[in-house]
Amino acid sequence: MKSRGGAADGGGTSTDTSAGVPLGGSPAASTLTEEPAAPARTVVRRAGAVRWYGLALAALALVLVCGLSLSVGARSIPFATVWEVLVRGGGGEEAFVVRELRVPRTAIGLLAGAALGLAGALMQGLTRNPLADPGLLGVNNGASAAVVTAIAFLGVDSPIGYVWFALLGAAVAYAVVYLLGSSGRASTPERMVLAGAAINAMLIAYVSAVILSDLSVFDEFRFWAVGSLAGRDTDVVVQVGPLILIGVVAALGLARPLNALALGEETGRALGAHTERTRLTGAVAVALLCGGATAAAGPIAFVGLAVPHLVRMVTGPDQRWVMAYSLLLAPVLLLGADVLGRFLVSPGELEAGIVTAFFGAPLFILLSRRRRIAAL
């Protein structure tokens, strides 16, 4: 005969069905359901520690490549001499090379690389397309069209003059793409990409028509269009630096909303993300980042596409980590390409934009074939 609790008389342990815990049972039995949580927390901690260690290694790599950018080239200068010039000043030919030529060049590489990498991560998050980059939405060609116009019709012939036209052209192109992509009921990633493709086609046609009709314009434009860190001075850094830094701050502030929107717009709104505000702020940040980088160094390909994609293979889809890693590793790639270009055709130089495309694109294709493109 069974008792009212459901256990046999004089036999097993009675059970409180509302709690699911044996009455009078051992403490170990009552905690069986809690044990799997401890290994899960350990795995999360270890993953976070690995990401922090990786971020520290990325920062170390950035410091190393900056040192190489300041010390190697047609005339190699020892690290000790570079440090002496930077800390204590001094005169002489080596001091001139370091301060007047290589410091602005390295600073442009840092700014442009960080801007391109972060803009690529932001654009991929906004469009939910892992193959999005600054060239996809017309930013690079908008800058190119503005520079061609300045050369052909306004007589501008210096990097300082190119900066503001390139920045304006990139901003206008992206604004047009954003307006076209958001017209109607609501903006969607697909509409943005289609609008970008249409604007890109128009801008390419315009640039080709202008440079092919005037060889002098072509000769002037091609040195900027190839993408290079050489020939820029501190005035370029002063002009584009604040704009890029504003774009960096705006982009980093969008990491959490992008994580929420990656779950879907309805879920993102339920989590507190404002869809239109996020996209509008992202558009402003992309215009500042891509416009500043393209204005300073020219339309450099591959950096904004490849770095966030490769980073995502390591960090996963969390935009906070993707942006942090891209901010450090994209300048490593750009400055590394610039340093490598100084050796490939020595005593001459190969522009950084050529190196990133020539070596980076095959590597990206190889990685894409060996591994699936990381989902956002």
Rank of each mutant, 00 (worst) to 15 (best):
H309C: 00
T13C: 09
W52L: 14
A273E: 12
P27Q: 02
T149M: 12
R185H: 11
Y53K: 13
V311Y: 01
P104R: 10
L126M: 15
T234H: 03
N259A: 12
V307P: 04
Y178R: 02
I373A: 10
L131A: 09
A195P: 06
F165M: 03
L335E: 02
A255P: 04
L62N: 01
S208H: 03
I204R: 07
I211N: 07
E276P: 02
A143I: 06
L254P: 10
V249M: 14
I204S: 12
E84R: 14
V103F: 01
G10T: 04
T127A: 15
R371F: 15
A195T: 07
V98N: 13
E220D: 02
T33D: 12
P317R: 08
A143D: 06
P104E: 01
V148M: 04
E94F: 15
A38P: 07
S26D: 10
T188H: 12
S228D: 15
V311I: 03
A361Y: 04
I365W: 09
G348F: 11
V147H: 05
P36K: 12
T267V: 15
R185G: 08
Q124D: 12
P347C: 00
A146R: 01
N140G: 09
M123N: 06
Y178P: 06
L131G: 09
L111M: 06
